[in-house]
């Protein structure tokens, strides 16, 4: 495995959980798959469609998202929205994210105490 592949693999692992968190926070306002993909990538949260669509389904299965079909337009679209348990998870993940960020900041500046 060359160094670039190794880097790409680790970056992917590091981002995996953050995509879940970003989805849960972003979907407090209901939206459909492609719009979510666009807005996350515009914000700099890099995720590709083959990751995002299965993730949305999994989160829905776990009860963290709810969904509703919108048939107002020519193309029916499934709108996802963060559920109350999704909100709780988002809070817990966000708290942990901040804690890790602080810890890493302390580690890099050598100012752990």
């Amino acid at each position: 495995m060359n160094p670039e592949e190794t880097t790409a693999g680790h970056l992917q692992e590091l981002r995996r959980g953050t995509v879940v968190l970003a989805c849960l926070v972003r979907l407090r306002i209901p939206d459909y798959g492609y719009a979510l993909l666009e807005s996350l990538n515009t914000l700099g949260i890099l995720v590709d469609a083959n990751t995002l669509y299965p993730l949305l389904r999994r989160l829905e299965k776990q009860g963290l998202l709810t969904s509703e079909w919108n048939t107002d337009e020519a193309r029916p679209r499934k709108f996802y929205r963060t559920s109350p348990s999704g909100e709780q998870l988002a809070d817990a993940l966000m708290t942990d994210w901040r804690r890790i960020d602080d810890a890493l900041a302390g580690l890099t500046t050598g100012d752990e105490k």
Binding site: Y34, W69, R75, P76, R77
Partner: peptide, 14 residues
């Protein structure tokens, strides 16, 4: 079927 058609349609349009 519905989900996949939505996804293909949106990706194609983009």
């Amino acid at each position: 079927d519905r989900e996949l058609r939505e996804r293909i349609g949106d990706a194609t349009d983009a």
